[in-house]
């Protein structure tokens, strides 16, 4: 059961940690260029859903289809390659490599995909300009503010031209002004590049930047557009 036109779709996902069910029949889909917020209380299973969708963890059962390919049918190496080529990630914090400069951080996914340093850094700088942090190129993550670091992380997530960005509480460590600016830039850049965004958040103001929201409760996802 894959919704028509969807880029990434999950059906009836189940995942248990020990005796605790984290996902209990969750389904989800996102279209190209669509921003979908995944909401729900703490411990509801929303991060587990994101990790399954991104191929970081494997569900116990259920299917995940990305661009017509079944994720569970892929080997670990194939899934890793897919993550590098098609997926971008933004987390709450601690995602930039502290030893590298900001521009090297943004260029990293391109370098891992085999792009030469000069070309990778040129693309990285273009994205940093879009995210209004091009003046931080030579600085290291420890030398920039939380808001700036998060914009660098968004630039990095977009640099390798992914098809999907997974953002797990991307503004969780920021004040509301910085958080809103990060969301504005992330969603604008993603929409203009036709990149889908799966946005996990518990903040309604952040979710309001999405096109649609899905609520995870007790391991089940519910599309709120079709709520009673």
């Amino acid at each position: 059961m894959i919704p028509e036109g969807s880029l990434l779709a999950a059906h009836d996902l189940r995942k248990t940690y020990g005796s605790t069910p984290a996902l209990d029949g969750a389904s989800f889909s996102v279209h190209p260029g669509e921003v979908v917020a995944v909401m729900g209380p703490s411990g509801s299973g929303k991060s587990t859903l994101l990790h399954c969708l991104a191929g970081i963890i494997t569900p116990d059962s259920g299917t995940i289809t990305y661009a017509g390919r079944e994720l569970s049918a892929m080997s670990d190496a194939e899934r890793s390659a897919l993550r590098r080529s098609d997926f971008g990630f933004v987390f709450q914090f601690g995602q930039l490599v502290p030893e590298l400069t900001c521009v090297e951080n943004v260029a990293l996914p391109l370098r891992l995909n085999g792009v030469k340093r000069k070309a990778a850094e040129r693309t990285a700088l273009e994205w940093m300009e879009r995210l209004e942090v091009d003046d931080l190129g030579t600085k290291r993550p420890g030398e920039v503010s939380g808001g700036q670091g998060q914009r660098v992380a968004v630039a990095r997530a977009l640099a390798a031209s992914p098809k999907v960005i997974f953002a797990d509480e991307p503004t969780g460590a920021l004040d509301s002004l910085n958080g809103e600016r990060v969301m504005e830039l992330l969603t604008e850049a993603a929409r203009s590049a036709n990149v889908a965004v799966v946005l996990v958040t518990h903040e309604a103001r952040v979710a309001a930047y999405s096109d649609r929201d899905v609520t995870v409760r007790d391991g089940r996802a519910r599309d709120m557009e079709h709520a009673v």
Binding site: A207, A208, D213
Partner: peptide, 26 residues
């Protein structure tokens, strides 16, 4: 009646309005 459904549909209506206002703000 289902209070959970009532809360969910209200939540949805609130978020829809928040989306409109966020877009206008942007």
């Amino acid at each position: 009646r289902s209070a959970a459904d009532l809360l969910d549909s209200q939540r949805s209506a609130h978020l829809r309005m928040m989306r409109i206002l966020t877009d206008r703000k942007r």
